[in-house]
Design a protein around this nucleic acid. Structure first.
Lengths: 369, 369
DNA sequence: AAAATTTAGCAACAGCGTTGCGTAATAGGG
DNA sequence: CCCTATTACGCAACGCTGTTGCTAAATTTT
């Protein structure tokens, strides 16, 4: 845990991150753009820009001639100044992506994982994949780290896999620690769905409001972006949205309860009635909207993307019907812009975010002795 | 909206708020206590403490003699240095409370409101009630403001009541503005449930993790505390948790959907089967835990408190059954420590929080022109 | 009475954004 | 062609933050 005290170094990181967010969202920008967006003084922005140029993160890119007056210098992010690798660890496959500072996915590769793979087998697969990707343009020196998005439950703060669902050799594995040792890179571990929603938020910039990523892929999960940050919950266990009861008299689920969203949805899909399955999922999504009041819903996951239009239509219709009562209640519904890469890409962006995003002011916990 | 830029004044507010949080949580504290809790240097803490003493917010309260060495100065919050008044506006009643800087409720008064009361009638009732309370100890000068917790929907950011459920004269009423003008006090407007959870968080201090306040009172609502702040959602409409579907084949609800938690619960309660009603509510609570992974669940609301032990037992049992699978998944369940005052008290604490809590670093939205 | 230990705070410092003001670069008008 | 208005940029001084170095004070132990 990096304890960040509220000193002036926080200010530097914070305002730098604001400028970086502008650069990531807009292709090019000027000093006045940042001034408007942040409320900082022009002089302060100049200082921040000078620091970022010195670090090679942004560069001047010509001038704008608006007519009268001295032309404004135009700046642009240097996307290839930093990279991160993201890994999506599923039950049978490992997906690796290379993401640059702008959030663009450059390479994507899927490799199979042995049935019931062990931590060692995963590390070997990661090692091989990273060497291949990092060797492409000799970008080892510009590699910020590795992000891993994985099925839970896990402990994000301590980088610990508690008990990955359906994998026998994954009980209390300190994956972050052993991966950092094995790979010689900073490693960030998070739940797959949380990584996924981070990808959407990182690419949309500071305008992205409260949002959820709904993932249907051997189970139903949800990743949440609330109040400008990923929501992980008290024990990194948020998002078990598939195990919310939507039918009190429904069939018994593997989790022990009756009528979970997941089992009801699964039964419908199994029977071949995808349209019905999609409507069931839509009920769950509207439940989320009622509870959390979200601005965006993003749909993802292999099983969903296989029938993407059916799901998109069902959820859009249900959300629209719900919001019809009030015109000020608007929520966008969309398929993930990154498709199958969303989890891995988001894991990579979490690493970039740790370095170039808003620094966490770890509200210090007053832990009793 | 107070746009806070990330300058040194933020640092001051932030670190002062940390010290105030320590003072609020602990009866008394020393410099070393704060150093441990915040990670600041002793010298920095000394400066902060000096500022707070100058403002009359804390005071020296003797010394501690731990044995060897110079005794440490003990400090204590001065609870009566600042007050705030909180109002809970329900359909038929107005509840007013006086809360001090420590979060202690000093006076509580309930007065009836006319059926279908108008904004003017509410303002008059507020005016009378505030004059009575503020006159008690001539604490007008120490009054920070008025917090109003009200049924929604409303717009927290703009202080606007959009369309209060079941009240005819409340469509797009700029309540904050007209109340500030009428009462001559800063006014803070929020949903009732959000105010309620703020009360719990403010009293528990920085150790309070993600939490929900479940309120059963002419409807079922939820207030959320996530990531160290109240969660209001994209349109201040979070918490409509009573209108989440738990029974796909259930009876039709007033909201148009079938099998909402609220209608299913209501039918059971109407039939006199409170135990069953409580179990239905408990299913909804567990749904929340699955989705959000909360550390605390607080139960409140007049209809619930009337059978508090039945509800407490049902929810505790359901939460325990759910967490049994994993020992690291712990969630506390409790009745609100403030009882019927929780909404009004929370509204008052929101006012205090704006002045003496962690300052918001309003992540500036890059709003397109 | 002297040494050891712990706490408190003054003074100088580095670094942040802000303010004041001078300079550079352009278009338009005389 | 030159002058002026306009816009953008940045140096220098400043106020404020927390930090660092060091001295002084208050107590117990030897």
């Amino acid at each position: 845990m990096t304890r960040v005290t509220a000193d002036v170094t926080f200010l530097r990181g914070y305002n730098q991150a604001l400028v970086m967010a502008v650069g990531r969202t807009a292709r090019t920008f000027e000093r006045s753009t940042v001034v408007e967006a942040t409320g900082l003084t022009p002089q302060a922005v100049s200082k921040v820009i000078a620091r970022l140029i010195a670090d090679g993160l942004i560069r001047p890119a010509g001038v704008r001639r608006p007519g009268i007056g001295k032309p404004a210098v135009v700046y642009a992010l240097v996307p290839d100044s930093r990279y991160a690798i993201g890994a999506h660890v599923a039950r049978r496959t490992l997906r690796l992506v290379l993401v640059d500072l702008a959030g663009t996915v450059h390479h994507s590769a899927v490799s199979p994982l042995p049935r019931d793979f062990t931590p060692e087998q995963l590390l070997d697969a990661l090692s091989v994949g990273i060497d291949t990707m990092a060797g492409i343009g000799d970008l080892r020196s510009r590699l910020t780290g590795l992000g891993i998005g994985m099925i839970g439950p896990l402990d994000h703060a301590n980088g610990l896999v508690r008990d990955a669902h359906g994998l026998r050799h994954w009980h209390d594995v300190p994956l972050r620690e052993i991966a950092e040792k094995h790979l010689g890179l900073p490693v960030h571990l998070d739940k797959d769905v949380t990584a996924g929603i981070t990808a959407e938020a990182w690419r949309h910039g500071a305008t992205f409001g409260d949002a959820a990523l709904i993932m249907v892929e051997s189970g139903i999960g949800g990743g949440f972006w609330l109040g400008g940050a990923a929501h992980r919950g008290a024990h990194t266990n948020a998002g078990e949205f598939g195990h919310t009861v939507v039918d009190l008299t429904g069939p018994r689920c593997v989790c022990g309860r009756h009528g979970c969203l997941e089992i009801v949805h699964h039964r419908a899909a199994e029977a071949g009635d995808i349209a019905h399955a999609a409507r069931v999922l839509a009920v769950g999504v509207v439940n989320l909207l009622q509870t959390l009041d979200l601005a965006h819903v993003v749909l993802a996951g292999a099983d969903l993307l296989r029938h993407s239009q059916t799901y998109l239509a069902a959820v859009t219709e249900a959300v629209g019907a719900d919001a019809r009562r009030a015109d000020w209640l608007s929520t966008t519904v969309a398929l993930s812009s990154l498709g199958a890469d969303v989890i891995a890409a988001g894991a990579a962006m979490q690493v970039l975010d740790q370095h170039y995003g808003i620094p966490e002011l770890a509200h210090p916990l007053i832990v009793g002795s």
